[in-house]
Design a protein around this nucleic acid. Structure first.
Length: 204
DNA sequence: CCACGGATTGGCT
DNA sequence: GCCAATCCGTGGA
């Protein structure tokens, strides 16, 4: 159970650092979406950094467009995009204004609102044990489970609807660094980070 | 268990 | 018109 009364919400200065630093720091933090009176929450266990200044896989590599403009703002906003004709993916905008950097959330370990997530993902009010690990182990799955879509594009994470909570510090030796997955450009950059041995990591 | 390919929309060339 | 920062079902081992 999370004690939501403690003043643990991450502030602006958490997000405005360099994108790979924020990516590492995001591991172990708690992602929260307030749904009316209820909360959906879980621990971030897998992320990838994207940096439009050098990285051809970043959506901002081509410059500012209607779709990616929020990534050029200062860190601390949510960048949501739609892909493959079916899925939304959620990103944490990072760095300074006009950098065009963000961190893709790829894996979350659910903590609160699991019944709601089960309903969102599988239209089941009771979650079969076999499907538990399939709830939020991927960027599209996370958005479906956490009810995140285009309407959340550009949300300010220092406000009260979607935000992050600080949590126990993650040790360096518990972080695995690899190449990013699911992309065709700049595939050699080692900008994927995940928590070692966590079952909600999308792929080893 | 793993590998493969189809689905399907919207953004950009 | 092309193709994507994905997911899931299918089919074979």
């Amino acid at each position: 159970m999370i004690d939501f009364k403690k003043p643990l919400k991450l502030k602006k200065d958490f997000y405005t650092k360099e994108v790979n630093t924020v990516a590492r720091n995001l591991l172990g933090k708690i992602f929260v979406h307030n749904i009316g009176i209820k909360k959906l929450a879980g621990i971030i266990v897998e992320v990838e950094a994207y940096d439009g200044s050098t990285d051809k896989a970043a959506h901002t590599y081509i410059g500012k467009t209607k779709r990616n403009e929020i990534m050029f703002e200062e860190g601390g906003f949510l960048y949501v995009y739609f892909t493959y004709g079916a899925h939304f993916c959620g990103n944490i905008v990072t760095g300074k204004k006009n950098e065009g950097t963000a961190v893709l959330i790829r894996g979350i370990e659910p903590l609160e609102g699991i019944e709601i997530m089960a309903k969102n993902r599988f239209s089941l009010s009771v979650l079969p044990p076999k499907k538990r690990l399939n709830l939020t182990n991927g960027p599209g799955k996370i958005c479906q489970a956490f009810q995140i879509n285009k309407s959340h594009y550009g949300i300010d994470l220092t406000k009260n609807e979607i935000y992050l909570l600080d949590n126990k510090k993650v040790k360096d030796e518990d972080i695995v660094v690899t190449k990013r997955i699911g992309i065709k450009k700049s595939i050699d950059l080692p900008w994927r980070y995940y928590l070692k041995d966590n079952p909600y990591v999308s792929k080893k």
